[in-house]
Computed example of a mutant assay.
Amino acid sequence: MPEGHSVHRIARQFDRHFVGERVAASSPQGRFADGAALIDGRTMTDAKAVGKQLFLEFDEALYLRVHLGIYGAWDFAGDVGRDATTRASRGRMGQTGMRQADTRVVGEHEDSLSSIGAPRRTRLRMAEQETETAGLEGFPPEPVGQVRARLLTDSAVADLRGPTACEVLDAEAVQRVIDGLGPDPLVDDPDEGERRMVERVRSRRTPIGLLLMDQSVVSGIGNVYRAEILFRARLDPHIRGSELSEEVVRDLWRDWRYLLGVGVDTGQMLTMDGLDEEARKLALRNRADRHWVYKREGLPCRICGTHIVLEMAAARKLYYCPTCQR
């Protein structure tokens, strides 16, 4: 499932290429035809991510809410060779009006410049490795596959495939969704977000390995970040939230804030620190060199040599080292 860093990058792609533009909305697949009609011809005024939720605002306070779920992804084509990454926007997370920033592409080390979301063989990635000029040849391209929603401007197009949620909401409904979410380090005030996470974790008797995946506790963490954050903290995923000290939970929040920033900046879930230049290059090219425990079941722990364990927790795969995380 795409995690928080991917959704923030998608929001920045929309901020860069769609905000301020009149948008033609359609549903080539047909399942979103009624929703598309509500926003068709309106101007996009803002693009914001909160955790795994994307909110695209249009004039007259209508919003397109998208949750990619396990299979969803956005494919971009046209004039999308530039993007407001963290570095390009000089750290101004989520702000609009940055079209002049610089010409870095989204995610310096991302495999695709134009497709963000769940990778899978059956989904055609549009505009793979294409140049800005090539992307405008024959524009707009014909929709390929099951496109739930298409957003089109004079120079850019975004196709949405396979989302769990895709709906048009008013401002009040959007606020209700956001009110039900835990804090997001790139949206909430850092201190207030930290306080909220501490309160929500320490009031629950649920294992921390499940709490980190609960979007009402903290926003944006999925299976990869859950496993890696717990290893980095040397925390047993089975410890209940109520058994953790305030300082331990504060450290979890701060590490999530750090890792999320790295993910948005690089386009990759890079969770290993202290790498030399060569090791960092390998990590950015290959997931096997990028993580401490995720998808390393049966392999020796990078620290102690104990074999990494895989177990199921609430129908999701949980990876951890039984020695380092005692």
Rank of each mutant, 00 (worst) to 15 (best):
P2V: 08
G4N: 04
A11M: 00
A11K: 01
Q13F: 12
F14C: 00
F14M: 02
D15Q: 05
H17D: 02
H17C: 02
R22W: 00
R31V: 14
L38S: 12
R42Q: 08
R42M: 12
R42Y: 03
T43V: 15
T45H: 13
D46W: 15
K48D: 04
V50S: 14
G51I: 14
K52M: 11
F55L: 13
E60H: 13
Y71S: 13
W74P: 14
W74T: 10
D75L: 14
F76W: 14
A77T: 12
A77W: 05
D83I: 05
D83K: 08
L113C: 11
I116T: 00
I116S: 00
A127Q: 10
E128K: 15
Q129G: 06
T131V: 06
A134G: 11
L136Q: 09
L136F: 05
P140D: 09
P141W: 09
P143D: 15
A149N: 08
D154R: 08
A158I: 10
D159S: 10
D159I: 10
D170T: 04
A173C: 05
P190H: 06
D191F: 02
T206M: 04
I208S: 03
D214L: 00
S216F: 03
V218G: 04
N223G: 07
R234N: 02
P237W: 05
E246A: 13
V248H: 07
V249G: 11
Y258E: 12
L259S: 09
G261C: 07
V262P: 01
G263C: 00
V264Y: 15
V264L: 08
D265N: 05
T271F: 01
L282C: 03
L284D: 07
A288Y: 06
V293Q: 11
K295T: 06
R296K: 15
G298V: 14
L299R: 15
R302H: 09
I303S: 08
C304E: 10
G305P: 11
A313P: 01
A315G: 03
K317R: 14
L318A: 10
P322Q: 07
C324V: 08
C324R: 11
Q325Y: 07
